[in-house]
Amino acid sequence: MEKNSYYSYYLPVLLFVAMLVDGHVSSAMMGMLSIPMTFTSHLVLLILMFSTFKVNQTYLMICATAIGLLYDSYFYNVLGINLILLPILVFFMYRLFEYVEPNTLTLILSFIVFVTLMSIGRAVLLSIFKLTNANFLDFFTRNLAPSLLINVLYICLLVIPLSKVYGVYKKK
Score class of each variant (00 low, 15 high):
2 E>C: 09
3 K>G: 04
4 N>L: 09
9 Y>A: 13
12 P>Y: 04
15 L>A: 04
15 L>W: 00
16 F>W: 09
19 M>G: 05
22 D>F: 11
22 D>H: 02
22 D>Q: 13
23 G>M: 07
24 H>L: 06
26 S>D: 00
26 S>G: 06
28 A>I: 11
30 M>K: 10
31 G>Y: 15
31 G>N: 10
31 G>H: 08
33 L>R: 10
33 L>K: 10
35 I>Y: 15
37 M>F: 14
38 T>F: 07
39 F>H: 06
40 T>K: 01
41 S>L: 01
43 L>G: 00
44 V>H: 00
44 V>N: 01
46 L>Q: 01
46 L>T: 01
46 L>R: 04
47 I>D: 06
49 M>D: 05
51 S>M: 00
52 T>I: 11
58 T>D: 05
59 Y>T: 15
63 C>H: 00
64 A>G: 08
67 I>M: 03
69 L>N: 07
70 L>V: 05
71 Y>F: 14
72 D>I: 03
74 Y>Q: 08
77 N>R: 08
77 N>C: 05
77 N>L: 06
78 V>F: 10
78 V>T: 09
80 G>C: 09
81 I>T: 00
81 I>S: 00
82 N>D: 13
87 P>W: 02
87 P>Q: 12
88 I>M: 12
90 V>L: 08
92 F>Q: 07
96 L>H: 09
100 V>W: 05
100 V>H: 04
109 L>P: 05
112 I>M: 12
118 M>I: 07
119 S>G: 08
122 R>D: 13
124 V>N: 05
124 V>H: 04
125 L>V: 03
126 L>F: 12
126 L>E: 08
127 S>D: 10
127 S>Q: 05
128 I>F: 13
129 F>P: 00
130 K>M: 09
132 T>N: 14
137 L>Y: 09
137 L>F: 10
138 D>I: 15
138 D>S: 13
139 F>S: 00
141 T>G: 04
143 N>Q: 14
145 A>T: 06
148 L>H: 11
149 L>A: 12
154 Y>G: 09
154 Y>R: 11
155 I>V: 15
156 C>E: 11
157 L>K: 04
159 V>Q: 02
161 P>W: 05
163 S>M: 05
163 S>R: 07
164 K>D: 06
168 V>C: 03
169 Y>F: 14
169 Y>W: 11
171 K>L: 10
171 K>R: 15
